[in-house]
């Protein structure tokens, strides 16, 4: 059992345009990436639970093997920089991913 932040090389969030935030989980080795992919830990359901959002707010969840990475793009509740926004660049929205547990034992 390991936490996602212990396995991933990069775990980040950023605006993808002002109306979406995109989460990137990237690995520097095939084994950790394959382990995560096989574990079925990252699904629309688990992400929706971690972020307390509806699965329909998740616009993309894609594994991209050549980059050993997973991308998750979600709708923003408030568009970037408008009244009520909490993170203009969307740069600190990755934290709920960090403690997701990966693997068995």
């Amino acid at each position: 059992m390991a936490k996602l932040y212990e396995l991933a090389k990069v775990l980040r969030s950023k605006n993808s345009g002002p109306f979406e935030v995109t989460l990137d989980i990237l690995f520097d080795n095939q084994a950790s990436y394959e382990e995560l992919k096989a574990s079925n830990t990252i699904t629309k359901e688990t992400i929706a639970r971690a972020y307390n959002i509806k699965t329909s707010d998740i616009h993309h969840l894609v594994f991209f093997d050549p980059a050993l990475g997973i991308k998750i793009t979600m709708a923003r509740e408030v568009s970037s920089g408008s009244a009520g926004d909490r993170d203009v660049y969307g740069a600190q929205q990755h934290a709920p991913l960090m403690n997701i547990e990966v693997g068995g034992e």
């Binding site: 990069v10 950023k14 605006n15 993808s16 345009g17 979406e20 995109t22 990137d24 990237l26 616009h59 993309h60 894609v62 991209f64 050549p66 980059a67 050993l68 990475g69 991308k71 793009t73």
Partner: peptide, 12 residues
């Protein structure tokens, strides 16, 4: 490869 990901809604 990772940078191809950056700030886009879809990886590829």
């Amino acid at each position: 490869a990772a940078h191809t990901f950056y700030e886009k809604e879809h990886p590829y």
